[in-house]
C-alpha cells in the first residue's frame, strides 16, 4: 500500500495550506428569504392543491374535445376575426408611433430642456406600468369597448414603450455626428435630421415593428374582454363550451402569431443589418455553402489559433 505512488508529490505532502471553504452568509440568507417567501405563498394561497390530481386527465380530455378534430368549417370565420385583431394591432401601433415619435424627441437629452424631458419620461413610465388590459377596462367604462377603442388602448400602451425606446435610441447615438453637424452651424432640427436620425433610424424602425408583434398579442387579449376580433370569438366559444371551435381558434392564434413574428423578425433583421435573411431559405443556403466550403478547403474547422505560422 505504501509503495504505490500517491497523487501528492513526495516530500510536499500537505505542506500547502488549503483554503477554508468560504461561508457565503449573504447568499444563504438570500436563499432562506426566497424559500420563505415561496413557502408562505404556497401556504397562504386559497387553492386546494388536491384538484391538481385529476388535472392531467382533465386536460387530456379537453385537448381531445378541442383538437380531435377541430371545427375546420369555422376556419373562414376564424380568419376574418383574426384580420380584425391584426388590424386593431396595426392601427393601434401606427397611432402609437405617430404620437410617441415627437414625444420621444422631446424626451431626449440634448434636444429638449429638463423641464420638458422629465415630465414626459414620467408619463412614459406610468403608461408602461398600466397593463393594456387595464387601459381597455377604463375605455370600456368611459367610451365603451369596440375594435376602435381597443386600438386606442393599444396606442396608449405603445406610447409608453415606444417613447422610452425612442429616446434611449436617440441618446445612444454617437456624439460625433451630432457634434459635427452642430459645428457646421446646423440648427437643432437640422442636427436632429442629419446628425441623429440617420444613426438611430434602423433601430427605431425595428422597435416599431417589434412593438407591432407585441400589439398582435395584446389585441387578442383585448378581444377576450370584449374588444372584438379573434379574442372575442374565443371567449364566446369558451363560455358556451364549443370546444372544437375553440380548438380551431387556438390553432389560428398560434399560427398567425408565429407567422407575424417570423415576417416581422425577418424585416427587422433586414432593417438592422441591411440584408435579407429568410429563415428557411437561409438555413438551406447556409447548409449548401458549408458543404461547398468544406470541399474547397477542409481546414475551416482548424481550431489552431497559430495557424498563421503555416509556411
Amino acid at each position: 500500500m505504501s509503495a504505490a505512488p500517491t497523487l501528492v508529490a513526495p516530500g510536499r505532502a500537505t505542506t500547502q495550506d488549503r483554503p477554508r471553504k468560504p461561508a457565503n452568509v449573504t447568499r444563504k440568507a438570500l436563499w432562506l428569504v426566497v424559500v420563505a417567501v415561496v413557502v408562505a405563498a404556497f401556504w397562504g394561497v386559497d387553492i386546494s392543491w388536491g384538484a391538481l390530481w385529476d388535472m392531467p386527465g382533465k386536460l387530456w380530455h379537453y385537448l381531445g374535445l378541442m383538437f380531435l378534430p377541430p371545427a375546420w368549417s369555422k376556419l373562414p370565420d376564424a380568419l376574418s376575426a383574426t384580420m380584425l385583431s391584426v388590424a386593431m394591432a396595426w392601427f393601434g401601433t401606427a397611432l402609437g408611433v405617430v404620437i410617441s415619435f415627437p414625444l420621444s424627441l422631446l424626451a431626449t437629452r440634448g434636444l429638449a430642456p429638463v423641464a420638458v424631458r422629465w415630465p414626459l419620461r414620467a408619463v412614459f413610465a406610468l403608461l408602461r406600468a398600466v397593463p393594456e388590459v387595464v387601459i381597455a377596462v377604463l375605455m370600456l367604462s368611459v367610451t365603451g369597448l369596440t375594435a376602435f377603442t381597443g386600438a386606442l388602448a393599444i396606442a396608449i400602451g405603445s406610447v409608453g414603450t415606444l417613447g422610452k425606446w425612442g429616446y434611449e435610441a436617440f441618446e445612444a447615438v454617437d456624439g460625433g455626428a451630432t457634434e459635427a453637424a452642430t459645428a457646421a452651424g446646423a440648427s437643432r432640427a437640422q442636427v436632429m435630421r442629419w446628425g441623429v436620425w440617420p444613426n438611430a433610424a434602423p433601430e427605431v424602425l425595428a422597435f416599431w415593428l417589434y412593438r407591432f408583434e407585441i400589439s398582435v398579442r395584446a389585441s387578442a387579449i383585448l378581444g377576450l374582454i370584449g374588444a372584438g376580433g379573434i379574442g372575442k370569438m374565443l371567449i364566446d366559444n369558451i363560455q358556451f363550451r364549443v370546444w372544437d371551435v375553440v380548438g380551431i381558434l387556438m390553432i389560428v392564434v398560434v399560427v398567425v402569431t408565429m407567422l407575424i413574428d417570423q415576417i416581422s423578425g425577418t424585416v427587422r433583421h433586414r432593417i438592422i443589418t441591411g440584408r435579407w435573411e429568410v429563415p428557411v431559405v437561409t438555413a438551406l443556403r447556409r447548409r449548401s455553402a458549408r458543404a461547398a466550403r468544406l470541399e474547397a478547403s477542409p481546414s475551416i474547422l482548424e481550431d489552431d489559433s497559430r495557424s498563421g505560422t503555416v509556411g
Partner: peptide, 17 residues
C-alpha cells in the same frame, strides 16, 4: 480530498474556492 490533492500537486490549491 482527491481533487484537493490534485490541486496540491500543481501547486494551486490556494485558489480552490
Amino acid at each position: 480530498e482527491l481533487a484537493m490533492q490534485a490541486l496540491e500537486r500543481v501547486e494551486i490549491v490556494q485558489k480552490a474556492y
